[in-house]
Design a binder for these strands. Structure first.
Lengths: 231, 231
DNA sequence: CGGTCGGTTGAAGCTAATCAATTAGAGTGG
DNA sequence: CCACTCTAATTGATTAGCTTCAACCGACCG
């Protein structure tokens, strides 16, 4: 543990409300690790030994079955992952892999569960974190079930555009292969979907996207705050 | 509140560990209502005023956007719903509608949040409930993204078969239209998928399904405990 | 008895996946 | 520096999966 990171971790929703001693205890047990890119941090089906908190870099959560694989989510700093499995002392439903060099805080599951048992404030903080994770997956599920792939792409572009300050330009925060998997498309299909969106003022140049007809794009996408907004 | 129901409610994971007085307080504030079938209990986008606990009957959770609608889940007794929205004092991401005459316990969101703030044990119980809801949605998401519709149907049949005692016969617990929506299929597509499964020993007679080649069906379905088992 | 609803079937069309080929760029090593 | 390889991304051709529209059947209901 480098002292330097403590304030940032302390500021996370999950740890903000806990007592000074509880926090110190957790941090004492925690490991801070730096991993290169493309390292498998977690494998589906393994027991949850650690709660992970991403401090720097990027981590992909993956689901797989029958030889197929899909990207379930992309974790950015300072996101936590694998919280539910840790709390339930259960096996991982997803794998996790770094997609960049990443700095990760690993807190032994044991310590999380012990603290949960004795610190009510921590339990409440976890309730908030879990609730918002849960709602995020529900939104994602609605997105998947109710929209075509072109619509999913259009809405994702609009979301990114808003998140990046609505300047008319969007920078894709991940490569197109990953974006395709996130949106449940093949890379070929994504490429063609971008082609379809040209007619709606979407110009793609590598990871840079320019939007020249936002209202047209929104008419196609029909963004919905119950799906697309992080509320 | 009928006295008669109290022990069953008390036995729920969510309430089992709380103090006698806290429980009494909650129940005092709660309403027990009986609704006919096809009643809209909750509308997407409304604020979460109550936590719902289904005591009897059946409730469908629905998501919608742009005039489309999909079944997100079916709640059976004694399931809770809308917990995350209540906890976060947020708007509903899903609608809820009875599909049978149903008896529902409604606890004001206010009381839930108050109790969460002062009762650590209740917070812990909620953590468990939320974690398992969360993991259920993740499983469902993997199911959707990684399997074709015939595979989803085959696995659903196998799951139901196991849940009903693996007797070689399965009774569909909901009508086919609903099953189709749950599996993200059209009713026509579901009907054809049943046709496809005939070759795997699946005989359908209304809501009764007979399985004569379970191993064949499982070879097709490739059930996966990280998707299909309620762990 | 006509009407409605759930379910099935057929035909046609659309969406998306697959397979194959090509290009462009990044990284490697002689 | 230039071949060489590797990978991401795109494009075309084809096929598979799924939806849509339409017709139809049978059960249930007023």
């Amino acid at each position: 543990m480098r002292e330097h990171d403590l304030p940032e971790i302390r500021a996370l929703e999950l740890f903000r409300t806990m007592s000074e001693e509880s926090f110190a205890e957790l941090m004492h047990a925690a490991y801070l690790q730096t991993f290169p890119t493309q390292v498998q941090l977690i494998s589906e089906g393994d027991l949850a030994d650690f709660l992970f908190i991403l401090l720097e870099g990027r981590v992909e959560l993956l689901g797989s079955t029958a030889g197929r694989e899909t990207t379930m989510a992309i974790i950015k700093p300072f996101g936590t992952f694998i919280l539910a499995a840790v709390l339930m002392d259960a096996i991982h439903l997803m794998s996790a892999r770094t997609t960049e060099k990443s700095r990760v805080l690993m807190i032994p599951a044991r310590n999380i569960r012990d603290l949960l048992a004795k610190d009510g404030d921590f339990a409440r903080a976890i309730v908030v974190e879990l609730s918002s994770c849960y709602r995020a997956v529900v939104r994602d599920q609605k997105n998947l079930k109710l929209r075509s792939s072109v619509e999913r792409l259009a809405n994702r572009i609009i979301s990114l555009h808003n998140a990046q300050g609505a300047t008319g330009t969007v920078i894709l925060p991940y490569d197109k292969k990953t974006l395709a998997s996130l949106l449940n498309m093949t890379p070929e299909n994504l490429s063609r979907a971008f082609g379809t969106l040209k007619a709606y003022g979407v110009q793609v140049d590598n990871e840079r996207i320019c939007l020249s007809d936002l209202t047209g794009l929104e008419t196609l996408a029909q963004p919905n705050r119950l799906i697309d907004e992080r509320v």
